[in-house]
Nucleic acid binder design. Structure first.
Length: 239
DNA sequence: AATTCCTGCAACCGCGAATGT
DNA sequence: CACATTCGCGGTTGCAGGAAT
């Protein structure tokens, strides 16, 4: 019936030897004790003349992320057409490896209560919070969700700020470098520790760089940080 | 130094689509 | 047109080698 059945007819499986590769290069699958499917896969993924190996370039990575953001689904073969020399399998491996890493970083993902604990704990270490302790600033007022920062979020919030605290500071006050307001922001998981709760009560947040001078140009940053778009992140909703 | 864990990669599997008879 | 075979795709698994303990 299906091609999978021919793997049970005494055909060889597993790793390909150099001799087998040479035979396949010379003449399709003549003389090989391999099923056609296996030969095709070997040829397409490894032996065809224009096959490209090695780590993905920045340009290739960008294409992959952009493709996913545009189509929101896994069409490896279609994507392979955009990346000359790369096979669908290569791209799939690249994507899955990345996904695994991120899932590991996300796990165990804290639930809402744990997250509140974290926020309050870190907030209590902050002088600014002590100074301005006020019901208005209580964390429970802040709604949050979490997940991957991928297409669905991008559609709604096309501008994703870079991590707070590490690279940037936030200011709720008016600033000469006002860059607009945000109704929501993303907060990367790795930065949850040290979260300054006193700074997230306002629905009008202005982002400036660490010196408090340069407004963040999110348009450029999104382009430059496509990798970050797949990072697990916390979406704080101020609405 | 030995063992375990992690990661990247290659290959297999099942299924539906396309093609051949 | 019906059935058989092959092809192509996406999901998954298994293994080897390096890193961490």
């Amino acid at each position: 019936m299906s091609s999978s059945s021919d793997t049970n007819k005494g055909l060889k499986k597993g790793k390909w030897s150099k001799e087998e590769d040479e035979m396949l290069k010379v003449s399709r699958n003549a003389g090989l004790i391999r099923c056609g499917k296996s030969c095709r896969l070997r040829w397409y993924n490894h032996l065809r003349p224009d096959v490209k190996k090695g780590p993905f370039s920045e340009e290739e990575k960008t294409k992959v992320f952009r493709f996913f953001n545009n189509f929101g689904e896994f069409k490896w073969s279609k994507l392979a057409q955009e990346l000359p020399g790369r096979s669908d399998n290569d791209i799939k491996n690249f994507w899955n490896a990345r996904k695994r890493k991120l899932e590991k970083r996300m796990s165990p993902f804290p639930d809402k209560m744990e997250l509140n604990d974290e926020l309050n704990k870190s907030g209590s270490n902050s002088q600014q919070v002590k100074d301005s302790q006020d019901d208005e600033f209580n964390i429970p007022q802040v709604k949050f969700t979490y997940g991957y920062g991928i297409r669905s979020m991008l559609g709604e919030y096309p501008q994703i700020p870079p991590p707070m605290e590490t690279q940037y500071q936030m200011s709720e006050s008016s600033s000469p470098y006002k860059s607009g307001s945000l109704k929501s922001m993303f907060y990367r998981q790795e930065n949850w520790e040290g979260f300054d709760a006193s700074r997230v009560h306002s629905s009008e947040l202005n982002l400036v760089d660490e010196k408090g001078k340069k407004p963040i140009s999110l348009k450029d940053d999104v382009e430059a940080n496509l990798d970050d778009l797949m990072d697990p992140c916390l979406l704080i909703d101020f609405s």
